[in-house]
Design a protein around this nucleic acid. Structure first.
Lengths: 345, 345
DNA sequence: TTTGGCAATCTCCTTACTCGAGTGCTAATA
DNA sequence: TATTAGCACTCGAGTAAGGAGATTGCCAAA
């Protein structure tokens, strides 16, 4: 649908209506727009335009004697054509920076936890962060460390300076020499590949080696655990309480649905990862959303980088969310996060 | 308060009342008890006894024309004197076993995640699990692995076969020889101590060594991150949706309070850890609880062991919870968890 | 000691009704 | 032709009133 040919007046009214609705959560009537937004037009005129907007499917009436509220399509137009990102206050910038980068020497996990927290806090929505997609990482080295009888710690180091560790089990004792051999074979054959590539070709690559079959078996067996990013990628969610307060979640059932979704984690995770690619901000509005539990919510997502690996952060809230503010916040946070993480490299 | 001298009848009525209230969440009247629980007594007699119980502070009336509901003290007496643990069905046992122990080779974190999930699911309450108290662990070995320019992966292995890894940063390059030296010094001086002990005495123990001062500095700087268990202990919470459905959380404010608490994690964590010691089940009822957000909730906790290190699991729900069932479930789960974890040793 | 009976109490639900907000339409106006 | 004032109409939210139902406490009888 092409809404580029909306008249100036139609745009203005749509904008004011949405602005006001975002603030109050109450259907907006012509009176409010005429008075509060001093457009120099009478209520009647505004009513006429509102009728037009309704015919176009951009706004709707909950019932006859109520004002109008934006439809998902209305938000879409608003976001695409009318959105003016709201600048962040310096206080906001400071707090984002502080939360993300304060104590050095913390794991990326902690940092992402902080990120989702700061997102949740300053947006008053659900703040989300997802750890980097390990599969995109290029292997820089593998280390095998015996930690106990039958337990071996596998360290997978990735170019951007990330490392991942997994405790493997192997039947009976393992000879140190065997272990060292295995280690060097792995390093030789796998270095420079992305973990994703390794995942798909591992068994081939381990075909003809002099390594202990026991160890090879262990590797093949734990293939998925080791190389599949999903298992190590974590979803951090903060600010559920913000959601509960929103009038759109007064309905208990809708609330339980979404909270279940948040606990499930993996559904939301794959969806968000599929969304955010590249630099920009991506906004997904209400019914555009494939996950039924959040059909009445919008997402604002962006991605951050650590070296060449990317991850996703974002915000979820009711479709009636302060988009202009959120866009700026998410964008700024994503950038800060990228900066913070590359400092450490 | 000594309630040992409750008459047989008083006990029976209290028991029936609580049983019924747990089921329905509605105040229980004399009529229900007389009919449903066929005690061979008239309503009037039961009313009399109920008055007595109310005077003792074990039950109370929400308002004049309502039935009675148990007070916290009433639940206490119920739990201490009248509780008969309900046996688990074999289906329940199976599902607990499966969830906890299915795929081998998973990290303890995943297992604990599964544990809280199964607890939440089969109890219909909030399932909680906390990772083992690392501080109790006895160091079995330390390993320092260079993973990238200025980044060193520290592996702390503990006797029970657990290992913890932390990515440390150090200014500029580090000589491999220095690293090896540091490693062996650490192993020499710290092996056999618990991490808690190390935490308190580390700087002393590193006094006069031939190690690179740069590395020593790194260790001293990151002291807390490395040895403090709190940072690596995780709290898993599952089943928030179960809570929302409960009528006692119809009040939005109470709900937000508790959800904030759950997101905070550390408050709840230290409280639960302080509770569960040793083998048994510990039940904390409503106002016995120091955390104000859960003054209307009860906790059923127990602890599990991995080697000599212990951790906590449990369940949170409204004081009106099916204690007899929960006790059995938590107990069985804790034991299964201990078993599952020691299998792996 | 127990029980039947009864007045009293209080919540919850239903119904009816008013108030106010907002619309859409029509006719007048610029 | 575009805008506006005026007005009848619609509908939801909130309030008040009036039962219905449940349960109690107490008294007198068994």
């Amino acid at each position: 649908m092409a809404f580029e040919n909306l008249s100036e007046r139609e745009r203005e009214i749509l904008q004011n209506l949405i602005d006001h609705y975002i603030l109050t959560a109450d259907p907006v009537g012509s009176r409010v727009i005429a008075n509060k937004y001093a457009m120099g037009l009478s209520q009647a005129t505004i009513r006429n335009t509102m009728q037009d907007l309704e015919e176009m499917g951009l706004i709707s009436q909950p019932h006859t004697s109520a004002g109008r509220i934006p439809t998902d399509a209305g938000y879409r137009v608003f976001v695409d054509m009318l959105l003016k990102p709201a600048p962040l206050s310096s206080a906001e910038k400071t707090i984002i920076q502080q939360m993300i980068s304060s104590p050095a020497n913390r794991g990326i996990d902690t940092i992402l936890g902080q990120t989702s927290k700061v997102l949740g806090d300053i947006t008053n929505q659900l703040g989300i962060s997802i750890s980097p997609k390990f599969e995109e990482g290029v292997l820089s080295g593998i280390e095998l460390i015996p930690v106990a009888e039958g337990k071996i710690l596998l360290v997978v180091a990735v170019k951007s300076g990330l490392a991942r560790t997994i405790l493997l089990e192997v039947e009976s004792k393992v000879n140190t020499v065997d272990l060292k051999l295995m280690e060097s074979v792995l390093n030789e054959r796998l270095a420079g590949l992305t973990l994703g590539q390794i995942k798909n070709t591992l068994s081939d690559r381990l075909n003809d080696t002099a390594c202990s079959p026991k160890l090879i078996k262990m590797f093949i067996d734990s293939e998925t655990e080791i190389w599949d990013g999903k298992l190590s990628e974590k979803l951090h969610v903060t600010g559920t309480d913000n959601l509960i307060i929103q009038p759109e979640f007064a309905d208990r059932e809708r609330l339980t649905d979404i909270i279940k979704l948040l606990e499930e984690k993996n559904v939301l995770q794959s969806f968000m990862e599929s969304k955010s690619t590249g630099e920009g901000i991506i906004i997904t509005i209400g019914s555009e959303n494939p996950i039924s539990e959040i059909r009445e919510c919008s997402l604002v997502t962006s991605s951050y980088k650590i070296g060449k690996i990317s991850g996703t952060i974002g915000v979820i809230g009711p479709t009636r969310m302060p988009y202009s503010k959120l866009v700026s916040i998410v964008q700024y946070t994503a950038r800060s996060l990228t900066d913070a993480l590359s400092d450490k490299k």
